[in-house]
Design a protein around this nucleic acid. Sequence first.
DNA 1: CGCGTCAACTGGGATG
DNA 2: CATCCCAGTTGACGCG
Length: 261
Amino acid sequence: MEERKLSWYDQSSNFANLLQNQRMYTGAHFPVSATNQVESAASWSGTMRRPLFKPVELDDNIGRDDDDSDDSSLRLHNESKRRLTADQVRFLENSFELDNKLEPQRKARLAKALRLKPRQIAIWFQNRRARWKTKQLEKDYEALRSIYETLKVDRDCLIKEKEDLETEVLSLTKKLLLKERASNSSATILDSEISTPCVDEEGYNSMLMELTGSSNAFGLDDIDNYNSDHRSSQIGEVDDHAGGYDLSLEDDSCGYGLLWS
DNA sequence: CGCGTCAACTGGGATG
DNA sequence: CATCCCAGTTGACGCG
């Protein structure tokens, strides 16, 4: 026990000495409130609102570093599970901030200074680590949840953007096909005098029917597939529409899904 | 009285 | 084997 050689240690029933030692021990600075600890250390239960630990007799600790000796007498026989004083807790908190692990020497030192049993110091540090871990998990969870929410919003925006782009692609493809077919079909109709009656008001409906008949040449199958995958509701709508024309191309009516949508 | 908090315990794994 | 740590639990206590 090298601490015994230190002058502060023999007077360790007071916080000021221990505070000094902690500064030396870690080189860290304590908050200003540490002085309050020193002052209030004089009266153990001065500001307490409920029953507190009766300070352990110093003799109980001397020469006994072992945790598990006869601490069972601590509970159940005595009035068990009394809270530590605010000053004790504050001091332990400071110590915990410096280092959340507890070496035997430090444990003994704290125990003497706070008039607690080493076992109590160890238990306090264990419980404190558990509380810290719980809080840390909560923080991590919140951080992850925040990231998740952000990513979700981004994802939804991207999906919407993708859908808009796909719609635009389809629209442009349709226009392109119609344009190409229009330039071809005018010549075709003139040449071969197609007899199929095309009752159209807007002109391009007839071209659509022709387009359907030779869809492969224009890659319409791909678009049909897309429609059957993604636009089934629209296809139904188109089918109703197409039925009105009494087409002989019913089996390929999917082709209109794209064009009518 | 239910609930939350906290000191203390238990049991098991890790380590030297 | 002694010791430490951790996860889970218990029991006392205070509060709304």
